[in-house]
Structures are given as C-alpha cells and as structure tokens.
Write a protein that binds this DNA or RNA. Structure first.
Length: 274
DNA sequence: ATGGTAGGTATCCTA
C-alpha cells in the first residue's frame, strides 16, 4: 500500500485555499498535516477542504495563532489533541490511519528572538515543550508503534539545514541548545529524519525562507524547519521524499514549503490483525 | 549593524 504524507505550515489556511489546491495537485498527499492554520474550529473551511478530496478532517485550532489540522483521504480514528507544559496552545494532535499508523502533527513554538531561556519566555517554552515531548516518547520507547511525527519543528538541526551555519549559531532555530534538545527528542524513540535519509547531509535543504528577504530565491537564506520523522517500524518502508521549494514562489506564498514522504507499506498491515 | 514582510479581527503582537 502506497501512502503519501505531506506537511506544510500554511500560515493561515483561510487566505491560502487556492495555494492549498496547488499543493494538493503537485504533492498528491493522501494525508496532509497543516500548521499555523490560524483559525478556530468553528471557522475552519471544512467544505473547501472536502472539495479538495479530503473527507476526513481533524482540526485543533484557536483564534489568531497556531493551530494544526490533519486532512486525509484515508479514514482517521481516535483523533485527539495533546498539550504540554500547562499551556493550552493548539500545537499538537495525534490520530490513527488504517494499518495502525499513528500520526503526530506538531507545531513547535518559534521561540522569539533572544536565545536565552532566562530572559525570553518564548524560548523557554520552546525548550520545555521539546523536553516534555522527549519524556513522552522515552516512556514509549521500544513499543514498536508505526509512528510518524510531522510538522514545523522550528529547528534546523544540521549545518546544511541553514544558509550559513556560523552566522546562525546564535539565531533562534539553529542554536546548539535547541539542536541538542531536538536530537534528544529524535533519539527518544529512535526516529529517522526522512528527508535526511534520502538527501545526503552535505546537501543544503531548506523548507522556509523569510518574508523579509528582498528576493528569497536570489539571497537563498533559507532554513530546514519542517520535518517528517519515522519510527523504526516505518523507516524501512520509505521510498521517496520531496521538498517542493517552488511553492515559495507562489503569489502570496506561505513562508514555508511542503515536505512530502512516500511509504510503501506491507499489504498485510491493512488486512485484519496485520 | 540594521531592518526588512506577512497575517490576524489586531491599530500591536507574533513569526
């Protein structure tokens, strides 16, 4: 069974429905994880999303900020929201796909401008959420779940995940303290970074370019902030990845571009007790 | 070194 999963920080779903259609046409996802939907559940554009071919929709949104949504051609079951550090922000959902696939859709805090948890509460929140997630996955370590984690993690872990490693060492998203926290989270469940499983670490890969650049393509000051991680049970079934950088060149684009993985899963998983 | 853009129900705050 082939399964394509795309993650995209849409930066307001309501003003980008046309671009969402273009992402769907190009990436051909069976399941689309969105972040920064910026809409409460009552105002979510359900009809437009259904018209794009996604009858199964799990939303967790709030007014103005944050918000995640999982759109699916496959049935979704047991969708629920998770919250960390006592903060009620809408940043994390989990739901199940056929084949006992457990999909986490995640939006990690950006973290503000100053990379010091003592003086910047947003940066402290970012580190605390990563630590809480790490504890959650450590507790589940070795349970063998067919688990995927997709979303805007707001951290570029490798030197080649940013346009200039040395220049960004003190810039939130690429500081050593964040990179180490993200690596602890990855190792908690032995997740495999799908994009880096297919693209060598020597090659620069970006999924985000600031709106503030005069010419994002020319200056190319990007970062790889959006990720899809696979549990050990799924990693052997990865067949392809794509970062669709051209999406940054849309009219009125999101500052993030879609990341897609394709998995070739055993048919037996979808028959009875698989 | 600085400031640059975009979105929201907001005239500043967050990214």
């Amino acid at each position: 069974m082939r399964l394509r999963i795309t993650t995209w920080n849409v930066n307001s779903i309501r003003i980008r429905l046309d671009l969402l259609a273009r992402v769907v046409a190009h990436c051909r996802p069976d399941v689309l994880c969105l972040q920064e939907t910026k809409v409460d559940n009552g105002r979510f554009p359900y009809d437009a999303v259904r018209a794009l071919g996604f009858p199964h929709i799990h939303v967790h949104g709030q007014k103005t900020w944050h918000g995640v949504a999982t759109l699916s051609k496959w049935p979704l079951a047991d969708g629920r929201a998770l919250a960390w550090c006592g903060v009620a922000d809408c940043r994390h959902t989990v739901c199940f796909l056929p084949g006992a696939l457990e999909l986490h859709n995640l939006y990690v805090p950006a973290g503000g401008d100053v990379p010091d948890p003592e003086i910047n509460p947003r940066f402290r929140h970012k580190l605390e959420m990563l630590e809480a997630l790490t504890g959650y996955f450590v507790a589940r370590r070795g349970d063998g779940a067919r688990l995927l984690l997709a979303g805007d993690l707001n951290i570029a872990p490798l030197p080649t995940d940013v346009w200039n490693h040395r220049a960004l060492l003190k810039v939130v998203s690429h500081t050593p303290v964040e990179v180490e926290a993200l690596e602890r989270l990855r190792r908690a469940y032995d997740f495999v970074d799908a994009v880096r499983a297919r693209i060598p670490p020597e090659v620069k890969v970006f999924t985000w370019w600031s709106y503030r650049a005069r010419d994002w393509r020319k200056s190319n000051r990007g970062r790889r902030l959006d990720h899809i991680w696979l549990a050990p049970a799924l990693a052997p079934h990865l067949v392809a990845v794509e970062v669709w950088a051209e999406a940054r060149g849309f009219d009125r684009p999101s500052d993030h571009v879609p990341v897609t993985v394709e998995l070739d899963l055993p048919d037996a998983w979808f028959h009875g007790d698989g």
